[in-house]
Design a binder for these strands. Structure first.
Length: 268
DNA sequence: CTGGATTCCTGCTTGC
DNA sequence: TGCAAGCAGGAATCCA
């Protein structure tokens, strides 16, 4: 499940394509094109000006307000190949040939992800929450969005309009590191807990980036290579395995419809 | 506004 | 062994 660290890793691995021109845009599965402010062909001949990330979205910007926005959903991959290379793989929904002897492939078995052709990025992202690795995401901001909320803190962390980029894996990991149960009503967190949580969010995301993302099953970076952070997870996916801190078995409950992993001894 | 449920989709896992 | 049911989840949408 590509979350902030995975999308950041894809972004970084694709940066060498900045300056290349779009040559051919082929949409094999039209349903993945979620918004079309302009025709795909209008990208052709234009240079990739920048490759950025916002939350879990990847943004390839060309000149004159022509932006290709990618969301990987659950099982999406966005990676490059040599222009002559052939892959015998299913679910390649879009292919983008560049003028640097490379092509970019968008592959997504479950099709929860998609592509957007966007002119006005500010408008497109107007409902996105703060970037959790930004300086303006801190305990003060977290306290502000938590205030008086009854929702489980885990569910609040997944709300992209409050904090952009946290998904199920890093939410569970951040709450474990902060020693807070995922089911705790957000408004019941103490100031100390809010400070710990704001730090642990940054910590687990930063670690995820350093490890080039978490590959549970589908995730690949822009070179179609797996990440390493699955080896660092303390609780996610470790149901009935010993807690790395106290040795008690990790629990797994559903919170807000999401599987949630925690240690009932270490988290309060 | 808030929070919960539902929907989309495929492929892996589970159980009979 | 084979098949069907269960499960996984990001975000939009709907409803109370």
């Amino acid at each position: 499940m590509p979350e902030l660290p995975e999308v950041e890793t894809v972004k970084r691995s694709l940066l060498t394509n900045i300056g290349a021109k779009f040559m051919v845009i082929k949409i094999n599965h039209p349903a993945v094109l979620r918004r079309q402010d302009f025709k795909p062909e209008e990208l052709c001949g234009k240079k990739i000006k920048s490759i950025e990330r916002r939350g879990k979205y990847l943004i390839l910007s060309a000149t004159s307000q022509r932006n290709l926005v990618v969301h990987l959903g659950m099982s999406g991959r966005f990676f490059m190949l040599g222009v002559q290379e052939q892959l015998q793989e299913p679910h390649i929904h879009a292919e983008i040939v560049l003028d640097n002897q490379r092509k970019l492939l968008y592959q997504d078995a479950r099709r929860f992800g998609g592509l957007w052709l966007v002119k006005d990025l500010a408008s497109f992202f107007r409902r996105m929450g703060k970037e959790p690795l930004g300086e303006d995401f801190n305990a003060v901001y977290l306290a502000e969005v938590i205030k008086n909320r009854k929702i489980a803190i885990k569910s609040l962390l997944l709300n992209q309009s409050l904090i952009a980029g946290i998904g199920n894996i890093y939410a569970d990991e951040a709450l474990f590191q902060a020693g807070i149960l995922p089911s705790r009503p957000a408004g019941t967190l103490s100031n100390e807990e809010i400070i710990r949580l704001s730090r642990s969010i940054k910590d687990v995301l930063q670690m995820g980036i350093e490890q080039r993302g978490t590959t549970f099953r589908d995730y690949r970076d822009g070179n179609n290579e797996t990440g390493n952070n699955q080896n660092n997870l303390q609780v996610y996916g470790r149901k009935n395995l010993p807690c790395p801190v106290c040795g008690k078995l990790i629990c797994c409950d559903r919170i807000g419809g999401r599987s949630s992993h925690y240690c009932e001894h270490c988290q309060l």
